[in-house]
């Protein structure tokens, strides 16, 4: 009985396993192999040991990429999380035209990312951008701000644009999670006279534990691998103020056709992400098994 049941479970997993073997494993191993080879486009490539790693570690923009990737990831995830949770809570209330607002507030995620970032680039523009025009007209500022072009504001501006586009994912995930929490729990809390804040802390948050874990896991990895916002908004500039590792990978691998170097940069970031995956999944598994 027990083995039969296990077999049934494995059968359900089989398609995913097939996908894993077919479309994930080979590209992944290929990329790792690239990091240890002198492969350029069109040549087979030879094993060169750690040469690529030594090269990219000595590359001036690499250390900036490490710091910026971490700063970008942590701040963007934090903002998206807070914003997404707040939006989900609001949309979970009995408000007028709830269906409309539920769809409307998710719209940033509908627009093709590429268009969204071009629009933000334009909004931020010091000469032709809506934000500067509006702030100047209201009288908040006296001269235009070059949001994306100053070291002090560039990273923040990129994070805001990225968060604007991606917070709906958090909102929709949390909102769906809130639907699976039984209303009875809230009703009895109401009877006990628990405040809304207490209800949020003791019912909503625990009820969303697994969703929050999964969302943070998936989006932290995705945010760390975000490329379009940087590429389209700043190109990593001004100077190296927003240079993240995916931008470095793009320049080395695609623009310079030096695949080995690009792969080495990616590989250097792997331990960080693998560690993240292991820690979060262990925590989730532990909680699930408890």
């Amino acid at each position: 009985m027990r083995t039969r049941e296990s077999l049934g479970g494995m059968a359900l997993l089989a398609p995913t396993l097939l996908l894993l073997l077919g479309l994930v494993l080979y590209p992944f191993c290929y990329a790792i192999w690239l990091a240890f080879s002198d492969k350029t486009v069109g040549s087979p490539g030879q094993y060169v040991g750690l040469r690529n790693f030594i090269y990219v570690l000595s590359w001036p923009q690499f250390s900036a990429a490490v710091t910026n990737t971490i700063v970008f990831t942590v701040s963007a995830v934090a903002i998206k999380f807070v914003l997404g949770m707040a939006v989900a809570l609001v949309l979970n209330q009995r408000i007028r035209a709830r269906n409309f607002f539920r769809a409307f507030l998710l719209l940033p995620w509908v627009m093709p990312a590429f268009v969204v970032y071009l629009v933000w680039r334009w909004l931020y523009d010091p000469l032709a951008g809506l934000i500067n025009y509006a702030l100047l007209d209201i009288g908040v500022i006296a001269s235009p701000i070059a949001f994306l072009s100053d070291r002090s504001t560039a990273m923040g501006s990129v994070v805001v644009a990225h968060a604007w586009r991606n917070f709906p994912f958090y909102a929709i995930s949390f909102l769906a999670g809130m639907q699976t929490i039984s209303q009875e729990l809230y009703d009895s809390a109401q009877v006990d006279g628990a405040s809304r804040i207490r209800q949020f802390r003791h019912i909503t948050l625990p009820g969303l534990y697994h969703i929050i874990g999964v969302v943070l896991l998936l989006t932290t990895i995705q945010t760390a691998n975000a490329f379009e916002p940087i590429y389209l908004l700043t190109g990593g500039g001004p100077s190296d103020a927003t240079m993240v590792y995916t931008m470095l990978v793009y320049v080395m691998g695609i623009m310079n056709l030096r695949l080995g170097e690009a792969a080495a940069v990616s590989t250097l970031f792997l331990p960080l992400l693998v560690g993240l995956v292991l820690v979060v999944t262990m925590l989730l598994q532990k909680k699930a098994n408890a």
Binding site: I145, A146, S149, L233, G237
Partner: peptide, 9 residues
């Protein structure tokens, strides 16, 4: 130079 040239595309 107009403001913003350091990230012009």
């Amino acid at each position: 130079l107009p403001p913003g040239v350091t990230t012009w595309d």
